[in-house]
Amino acid sequence: MTATLATITYVYAVTTSEPDSGQGHTPPSGGIDGASVRALPVGPLTAVVSSLPRDHFSEAALKDSLNDLGRLEAVARGHHTVVSDMAAHRPVLPLRLATIYDDDERVRQMVRGRAREFLSALDRFAGRAEWGVKVFTDDTPAPADEGDRAAPAPSRPTTPGGGGAGRAYLRRRIQRREARERAWERASDLSTQLVDRLDQLAEARRRHRAQDNQLSGARGGNVLNAAFLVSEENTRAFAAEVERWSRAEPGVRVELTGPWVPYSFVPDCLDERTAHGSASTVDR
């Protein structure tokens, strides 16, 4: 084996080598840990890379660091920033976090070997962006809604014949549970209709796992978490449609995020997880 370098080559993304359509190419200011970001041309394609210290990005080191939430966040945000900065000027094919090669030449070999797949995927992404749409139940109950359904407000005294504080407590608990169930059902119904409408404006859709509030910082239950691939032409209509539905139902919240680089729409043929039938494809 040849002597190993002190650095590894970290690949953020693959993009086209054509000159920029717009204002000239400004390379992303900083990559992971502030490392400089380089363009590695390979024929019609360009790999976007950084050299990073091997001892921080070995298998063992990564296993530790990626399991540390603070460190993971730094690496993930660094990766994401480079990918989205690049996408300001050209279609970009984002690679998964921590795609790492021994040196630049190994990256060139990889890009050469997959050039045809990369080019066709980049072509598909041109002029399109990913938008995230989430639907939440709002935990703060809407007063109008409580009235509609004739459920007593929490402050109202217990009904006659209730029989003591214990029973009143149980009744309140049941009411709270039922209110949550109803909110969940309304949010689910709205999600179904919303997805139907958005499908007509989008070119593709992927469903993500519902998010945990502790990580997202969001309030309420995450009923829908979906990503849509939307063309520039349809972007305004898409956003307007989401906004319209965000006012449709009290107690249900709709959120739009984006534009994202189309991470969620990388073709399956490029995904080695699909080819190998790995466990990670389960529940997607």
Binding site: I8, V11, V14, F57, S58, E59, L62, A76, H79, H80, V83, L93, P94, L95, R96, L97, A98, T99, I100, Y101, D102, R106, M110, R114, A121, R206, H208, W260, Y263, S264, V266, L270, D271, E272, R273, S280
Partner: peptide, 13 residues
């Protein structure tokens, strides 16, 4: 997105 989606290619590491 960055952990779960995007192109998965087995690198050298």
């Amino acid at each position: 997105r960055v952990l779960d989606k995007g192109v998965v290619i087995a690198g050298d590491i």
